[in-house]
């Protein structure tokens, strides 16, 4: 269903039927086992967003584990449903575009696919964006990107090698020259 139409259906009062169908699809609980069965897939998606370079990547940091835990326990139902449906949509889109499974795609093909998804799922302009999030939950790609980033940057490998981390700084240097290839602090 077209999202913009759905919003207008709710906000613009174009019909109770649209609204109730919409409500049903949004609040229905998707099968959480689909997250576990897609663990390897989620790991590859995360790696596509944050690949191993000179520093560890999302897979090294086991990002998929915490992503799945957050989806199960720290995510509202609408956003989680969007995510689970997004996984399936991505798979079929991959098949249609490259005639193969995502797991068999090259890194470039994977990136192209995710970039395409990101463009399509861009939130509406601020005011609509807010309503969109409230009624529809967060879309697949923003959630995937957010969770991958957080999973990586709060992991041991991500924080200590991908970023810079000091548990006990002991001192404050308020304004110092930036070091060559200085990483961002993992915690503020």
């Amino acid at each position: 269903m077209n999202r913009r139409k759905a919003i207008i259906g709710l906000v613009g009062l174009t019909g109770a039927a649209t609204a109730s169908y919409f409500f049903y699809t949004q609040t229905k609980q998707e099968d959480l086992n689909q997250l576990d069965s897609n663990k390897l897939f989620i790991a590859e998606l995360a790696e596509t967003i944050i690949p191993r370079t000179t520093t560890p990547g999302a897979k090294d940091a086991k990002a998929e584990e915490i992503i799945i835990l957050w989806l199960k326990e720290c995510t509202d139902r609408k956003t989680r449903n969007n995510f689970i449906r997004g996984l399936e949509k991505l798979k079929s889109r991959c098949q249609a575009a490259f005639d193969k499974d995502f797991m068999h795609c090259s890194a470039q093909e994977r990136q192209a696919l995710l970039n395409q998804f990101e463009k399509e799922e861009k939130p509406f302009a601020p005011i609509f964006g807010k309503i969109q999030k409230k009624f529809l939950g967060t879309a697949f790609m923003p959630t995937l990107k957010e969770y991958t980033t957080k999973a990586y940057c709060t992991s041991f490998l991500g924080a200590t090698q991908g970023l810079a981390y000091v548990l006990i700084p002991s001192r404050r240097e308020a304004c110092i020259p930036l070091q060559t290839s200085q990483k961002s602090w993992a915690t503020q």
Partner: peptide, 11 residues
């Protein structure tokens, strides 16, 4: 975007 350049920018 995603990939190495995304990673580079956010880190």
């Amino acid at each position: 975007g995603v990939g190495a350049s995304f990673k580079d920018k956010i880190t």
